[in-house]
Design a protein around this nucleic acid. Structure first.
Length: 521
RNA sequence: GCCCCCAUCGUCUAGGGGACCAGGACGUAGCCCUUUCAAGGCUAAGACCGGGGUUCGAAUCCCCGUGGGGGCACCA
C-alpha cells in the first residue's frame, strides 16, 4: 500500500474518542524493546538516537528497555567499545532494565554467549526445509559471481546446494567438509512487510538471496541471531536504522519460517553530513574533530556538552511534537514521544543547534547543579576551587555558557592569585596609555576609600568619575575589566570585583597602573 | 547495474484536500536592552524538486521524471 493511504488508514483506525494530540503509541501495552549495538567502535549519534527512541517507547508504556550486545563478529570486536556503549548510555540517562551488566530473565545478553541457542534454531530451519547446508567454497562462489556479472545478471547465490538432501549433507559434514547454513529463499512470489513509518513495502522474492545464517566456523550471523533473540526475549517493537530496510523481508521470512509472531518494525532514517547531502564517513568524522566537532557521545561529553542538551537535540532530529514546542527534558519526552510523529526522511546533523540546546539546558539548571558539573572542568585546569566562591560565580556564568568547558577560560581569573593583562588591552579605546593610567589611578583612589565592597556601591562613584573626566563609562570600565580579569570579555565587572574581594582587586589595579605607566614612558 | 526508501526556507521541522499569499526553531541581517561578552525582546530576508493527472479546490492523493539516501559480505 502506498504510504499516504497507509497513513490515512492508520489515523482512521484510532478510537473515535481519542484526542487528536494523543501521544499513546499504537499499542499501549507494556513494550519490550531492545537496543542491540555491535561493539565495533565508539558510540555515535545515530546509535544514541536509536537507543533514545527505544528507551522512550519502553518507559512510556511501562515496559522494558533491554541492552543486548551483538558481538557475533569476533573479527570486528573492539574490547573498549562495550564499555563506551554502557558509559554513553548511562551518561545520557538511558538506563536499561535488562541486559548485560544488570542481567534479567533472558540472560545471557551477549550474543557470543548464546551460540548453542542459535545452533538449535538453525537445526530447526534445516529440518523444516527453510534452510540448507551449503558446501560451496568462496572460490566457487566468486567464479559464479563473475559469470553473473559477465552475463549482466543479478549477482546472487547460484543455488548449487539448495536441493541437497539433508542426509547427503550430513554425510559430507561427517566426512569433514566445510559448510555454511543458508536460508532457503522462495524463488517465486513476493513478500509484503509493514514498517510503522512507511507502511507496506513489497519485495519480489526473486530479488532476495539465500542469505547465510551460520558461518563455516559455526557462528550465527545477525540475520539469525537477532531474530532468534528478539523472539526469545519477547521483543514487541524493533526500532533500528534504515540500513536494515534491505534485509527487512529476509527477517520477516525468518519469523514466518519459525511460525513466530512478528514484532512491530520501525526503521529510522540515517543522519547526513552537516553540509546536507551524503552520509557520514570515517573521513568525515576525522575532519569534524579537526574543527572541534564530533559525532561520538564520549567526545561531546569531553567537549562540555551536557546530556540534557544532547538528548533534546537528537530527539528532534527525526521526531517532533508540534509546530512550536522545542524544549524537552527526558521526562517530557517519555510522556510525549510517539512513533507516529517520527519522520522517515534523512536529517543533516546541525551542531549549531546542539550549541543552542546545550545553552538552553545549562540556563535551566539549578545553580547548585551547574556548580557541581563545572567543578571538574576547573580542576582539570589546575584551579583550586572553593565551593562557596563557586556558588557565587555560577550565576554570572550561567547565561554565558554554550558548553560547560567554556567556564575555565571565562572565569579562571576568580581562582588565580594574579592575572597577566596584556598591556595593550589595558589602554582604553580612544585614549592613550598615559590617559588610561591616569584614569586607573583615580579609580584606585576612589576604590581605596570604598567602605562597602558591594557591586552597586562600587559602580556608582566610578560612573561619576567617568562623567567628571568626560569619558564614557564603557571606556573606564574597559580598563578596569582588563585589570581585574585579565580579559576583554568577562562576566559582569562589579559583581566579579565583589566576589574577588577588596584586597585582590586593589592589588590587580595597582599592577595595571604600573603596566600602563611603563607603556606611557 | 539491480532492489528499496525518502523529498516544505541554508539546516531541523509543522502540515493528514478548503483553517496556508505555508507556521515554529537554528543560523543570517537589523534594531532595542547594555560596563564587555552573552542572555532576552522586536523586526527582516528565506521553502512546498519538476511535469502530468484526480478534484469545485492539491504542499497534502495518484503516476512519471529528477534529485538525495540505504542495501546488494562467511559485517552489523
Amino acid at each position: 500500500m502506498a504510504s499516504g493511504l497507509y497513513k490515512a488508514w492508520y489515523r482512521d483506525s484510532e478510537p473515535a474518542n481519542s484526542n487528536s494530540r494523543s501521544n499513546m503509541t499504537d499499542s499501549s501495552q507494556a513494550a519490550r524493546v531492545r537496543f542491540a549495538p555491535s561493539p565495533t567502535g565508539l558510540t555515535h549519534l545515530g546509535s544514541a538516537r536509536t537507543a533514545l527512541y527505544n528507551y522512550l517507547l519502553a518507559k512510556q508504556t511501562g515496559g522494558k528497555f533491554i541492552l543486548r550486545i551483538e558481538d557475533t563478529d569476533s573479527k570486528r570486536y573492539v574490547a573498549e567499545a562495550e564499555d563506551d556503549l554502557k558509559d554513553s548510555l548511562k551518561w545520557l540517562g538511558l538506563n536499561w532494565d535488562e541486559g548485560v551488566e544488570v542481567q534479567g530473565p533472558h540472560a545471557p545478553y551477549r550474543q557470543s554467549e548464546r551460540k548453542a541457542i542459535y545452533r538449535e534454531h538453525a537445526q530447526e530451519l534445516l529440518e523444516n526445509g527453510h534452510a540448507f547446508y551449503c558446501f560451496c567454497t568462496p572460490k566457487e562462489l566468486e567464479a559464479a559471481r563473475q559469470e553473473q556479472i559477465k552475463r549482466k545478471e543479478q549477482t546472487r547465490y547460484p543455488g548449487t546446494c539448495r536441493n541437497l538432501s539433508l542426509e547427503d549433507a550430513q554425510q559430507r559434514i561427517k566426512a569433514g567438509e566445510e559448510h555454511v547454513i543458508r536460508f532457503k529463499m522462495p524463488r517465486e512470489g513476493s513478500i509484503t512487510v509493514t514498517d510503522e513509518l512507511r507502511g507496506e513495502i513489497t519485495f519480489e522474492n526473486k530479488n532476495l538471496d539465500d542469505y547465510i545464517l551460520v558461518k563455516s566456523d559455526g557462528q550465527a550471523l545477525y540475520h539469525l541471531a537477532a531474530m532468534v533473540d528478539d523472539h526469545l526475549m519477547e521483543i514487541t517493537h524493533v526500532t533500528r536504522g534504515e540500513e536494515w530496510l534491505a534485509t527487512f523481508p529476509l527477517h520477516v521470512h525468518i519469523y514466518r519460517a519459525f511460525g513466530w509472531q512478528e514484532p512491530k518494525w520501525v526503521h529510522l532514517s540515517v543522519f547526513l553530513k552537516p553540509q546536507g547531502k551524503g552520509k557520514m564517513s570515517k573521513r568525515d568524522t576525522e575532519q569534524m574533530k579537526l574543527s572541534g566537532q564530533s559525532i561520538f557521545v564520549k567526545d561531546l561529553e569531553d567537549m562540555g556538552y551536557i546530556p540534557e542538551g544532547v538528548i533534546n537535540w537528537i530527539a528532534l532530529m527525526g521526531w517532533s511534537y508540534d509546530d512550536k514546542t522545542e524544549f524537552f527534558r527526558l521526562e517530557n519526552l517519555i510522556e510525549l514521544f510517539s512513533i507516529k510523529k517520527l519522520n522517515p526522511s534523512p536529517a543533516a546533523i546541525d551542531f549549531k543547534k546542539l550549541d543552542h540546546f546545550n545553552g538552553l539546558h545549562i540556563r535551566a539548571l539549578e545553580v547548585k547543579d551547574l556548580a557541581q558539573r563545572l567543578l571538574p572542568f576547573f580542576e582539570a585546569e589546575g584551579y583550586e576551587v572553593d565551593d562557596d566562591k563557586l556558588k557565587d560565580i555560577v550565576p554570572l556564568l550561567q547565561e554565558r555558557l554554550v558548553t560547560i568547558d567554556d567556564a575555565p577560560s571565562l572565569a579562571g581569573f576568580f581562582f588565580k592569585d594574579e592575572v597577566e593583562p596584556n598591556p595593550e588591552e589595558l589602554v582604553a579605546k580612544g585614549l592613550n596609555a598615559e590617559e588610561s593610567a591616569n584614569l586607573a589611578q583615580k579609580t584606585l583612589s576612589i576604590l581605596e576609600q570604598a567602605t562597602d565592597w558591594e557591586h552597586d556601591s562600587l559602580q556608582e562613584p566610578l560612573r561619576a568619575l567617568a562623567d567628571e573626566m568626560e569619558v564614557k563609562a564603557g571606556q573606564l570600565f574597559g580598563i578596569l575589566r582588563v585589570a581585574i580579569t585579565g580579559q576583554r570579555v568577562s562576566p559582569p565587572l562589579f559583581e566579579s570585583m565583589e566576589i574577588i574581594g577588596r584586597e585582590t582587586s586593589l592589588k590587580r589595579i595597582k599592577k595595571a597602573i604600573a603596566l600602563l605607566e611603563a607603556q606611557a614612558a
